[in-house]
Design a protein around this nucleic acid. Sequence first.
DNA 1: ACCTGAACACCGTTCAAGT
DNA 2: ACCTGAACACCGTTCAAGT
Lengths: 232, 232
Amino acid sequence: MDAITGEEVRRDGAGRRPLDQMTIVAEAIRFIDERGRERLTMRQLGARLGVEAMALYRYIPGREQLLDGVVEVVMDQLYGDTMVDNQAATWPEYLQQLAAGVRRLALTHPRIFPLIASRPPAAPWLRPPLRSLRWVEAFLEGLIGYGFSRGGSVTVYRSFATFLLGHLLLETAAAATLPDSGADDIELLESSDLANYPLLTEMAPQLSMDMYTDEFEAALEDLINRLALNRR
Amino acid sequence: MDAITGEEVRRDGAGRRPLDQMTIVAEAIRFIDERGRERLTMRQLGARLGVEAMALYRYIPGREQLLDGVVEVVMDQLYGDTMVDNQAATWPEYLQQLAAGVRRLALTHPRIFPLIASRPPAAPWLRPPLRSLRWVEAFLEGLIGYGFSRGGSVTVYRSFATFLLGHLLLETAAAATLPDSGADDIELLESSDLANYPLLTEMAPQLSMDMYTDEFEAALEDLINRLALNRR
DNA sequence: ACCTGAACACCGTTCAAGT
DNA sequence: ACCTGAACACCGTTCAAGT
């Protein structure tokens, strides 16, 4: 019996429960969070599930679709966090809460977030493209609920999505780079010795301060003001 | 004799001139522009240069460093386009010209541009990180020339770089996805049938209009206004 | 029903050998 | 001096075979 569900648990000869899509995708998410998406291979993922890579193909068409599944699960989590039971009283509050929710997700899964923008989108015609049509639909619906016209809600979607994805892709990119590729740079033209850059050297303390949060909030307030002014 | 330089050209038995770093990196840039960075392999790049993959290792330490070289060459091109002989009379004009130059580069090499943000940066402490320290140094110098304090120039760098990279990463991401991975999506929870999304269906024409240019310019003007207000 | 072994067509990279 | 063949340790993926 399973301790939580109380269901009868089937086990194979090696004492494993059989795989399924969700188990595999969930493990892939954990894998990418820990080691980055470059290192996610079918063979290594199989190993973590106690199985040969070939076994995964019974549940997942291939590696690309596995990555699509990862994005889909993460986007559904976002949908639940931000769109279900949203209590915002005004549209600026609504945007603030959505922004906070998306940023929380991006910082929780910094190595997965870039996939949201780089995977071939579900609706390539949507500008900017997003994997979760359900989220976009709910977003437009929310805005209309706050009194925006249909055309106005599209304008807001555009600038809000651009703002959010843009900022968070950048904030996230640093965290997503492999932490152990300590290889030397190719020396193409001149060495990038810090000594050649007096201003950089002098301002290094300020330049290295992590101000993403402040910058994010300042820019978001700005965007909301802009939208408020242009509203008709 | 070489038709252009007039120099004596060494050729090997197969009638090829010997390779060098620049030739290889330039071919890699062309390759990524045409077929995407996922498909750039040492073996295929070698083939385009009329050589086995192993020959490349005489000039390039490895694939990762080749990609670093690609970014470096592109950034140097950007430096030449935007920083050398910049004639802007005021700092807002300066930012407009830089923004236009960076966007031009991003749209010329949409499949290379994301590398600028995702490669391990030359100075990881720099926020936001950028591969070209030379460009950042010149940027700060320019701002100080227009009367910004040292601290003020850092603030402007931060918000300007965040804005630019963010917007362009997003605009560029669509173009960078492989155009021929027509595989079916994994069906995880529900099908993303457009019929379930009435607002999306209704607003499809507006949502599919490419408004990146307008959005980019509106947001840039906004940023400049914000910077002008906060200036001390 | 579910997993694996063997195989195929690819990778990046090293190094001794060819010219 | 410059390139290649052969090799190694990996990939994703297919499919007949095992339990």
